[in-house]
Design a protein around this nucleic acid. Structure first.
Lengths: 227, 227
DNA sequence: CTAATAGTGTCTCTTAGACACTATAAA
DNA sequence: TTTATAGTGTCTAAGAGACACTATTAG
């Protein structure tokens, strides 16, 4: 259906899929199966399937499933990158999403994707490197005032592990007491009943899990100006 | 150029253009000149002109100029609304922007646009009401921790006027001392040399203006977690 | 017992809020 | 002088950071 006199832009959805392994923020790269850049590693992405995708989020979920075999516990729209020069095929729109998954949800032997530390990725086709930088910046920014990093933790985790995740994302060390105050204030996690991290030669840590209501929503700390 | 097997979505850019007049946040509505919803008032928007728009921001600037005759000092991408049911013509993408303009930059007699208080707008074609709600929420949210509201002030303003803008956006009263500390900390405005608001029967207020570097960038207050 | 990490108590210092006080114009 | 608003000083309360101290496990 042509409804106007202009050449319509190309529309794709691309996903910056990240996980945290041993202190490194890893990025999922998918091998392109057609031109342009066939055979190169890019962000998992694809056309909107107007016949089956209800909306852009659904398209992103489908792409994650088809290209990486993953159903991500956290998936959020990042930004739309749109212009004449970002794709050699012409004026194009990429509705970019970013997803965070715990490492335990990743099947390491999936041949469709490869994982690279975001700091090691120096160039990518299209403007995908710029999209990745935006996504990493968004994650870092939200780490400052939200419970977003719990999306990178497994089904249960200790507070020390969670603090380590925050520290790796922020690139700083955090004070234990202040960190725990902040986390408790956000009310985003709860202790696993009877869940103690036994086996080590020291006091066992309580294990925690995300509260149910935080499947998608984030807890944030107060940011008000004045009274 | 058809490059895949899927019906491509329709792509438009829509702009939530707002100003503040006498305590009311006003929204610009443009009359649609074609179907669907011909003659109805909607957000100023239109197709991407792939032959002349360099990117989505340029398209938004062109739309603001053509449909409202305005060059906005602040224009930022809001979100992309994309799905099957938001436009009767089919699967569509709206790359939504929002713009803040001082009232003094608006020509009130422009027949292409009408201004309505955002709280008075109860229904709009497409999903434009939802887009407006997102935009208002974004402005309120950024008011909490940034200098965004100075984009609603004229070329010069007093601190009392600026505080009033913040208060109107937030719907609360603010403490004068705390407000001024916060504004000074953001380092976004500077006194107008010799600019005193004379004429009233009391001490004249110093006039301020945006610092040059804040044409587009916002100042924010610190949001760090811990040390 | 020791070693090691989990978890808490609490002091200090910073900062936000409250609010009174001074400053400066017009009439 | 009075009146009104601009602008500042400063006290207090809440919160963040620092860090020491207790708790609990394995060996």
């Amino acid at each position: 259906m042509r409804t106007n006199d202009f050449v319509q832009p190309i529309v794709t959805v691309d996903v910056v899929l990240m996980t945290l392994v041993e202190g490194d923020l890893l990025l999922a790269l998918a091998k392109r199966d057609r031109e342009p850049f066939a055979g190169d590693w890019t962000l998992p992405g694809g056309w909107v399937h107007t016949d089956e995708d209800e909306d852009a989020l659904a398209a992103a979920e489908r792409i994650l499933k088809d290209k990486a075999g993953i159903k991500s516990p956290y998936l959020e729209q990042l930004f739309s990158f749109a212009g004449r020069h970002r794709d050699p095929r012409g004026w194009s729109v990429s509705i970019a999403y970013y997803a965070l998954v715990p490492h335990e949800l990743i099947k390491d032997n999936d041949p469709r994707v490869t994982w690279r530390a975001v700091t090691d990725v120096k160039s990518m086709p299209f403007d995908h490197l710029s999209i990745v930088k935006h996504a990493v910046e968004r994650v870092r920014s939200k780490t400052l005032y939200s419970s977003l990093p719990i999306m990178l933790c497994g089904s249960s985790f200790t507070l020390t592990e969670l603090q380590s995740v925050y520290e790796q994302l922020l690139g700083t060390t955090l004070d234990k007491r202040s960190f725990r105050r902040r986390i408790e204030e956000m009310d985003a996690i709860e202790p696993v009943p009877g869940g103690l991290a036994r086996g080590a030669a020291h006091r066992p840590a309580q294990r925690y899990r995300r509260k149910r209501r935080f499947g998608g929503q984030l807890a944030v700390v107060d940011r008000s100006v004045t009274t």
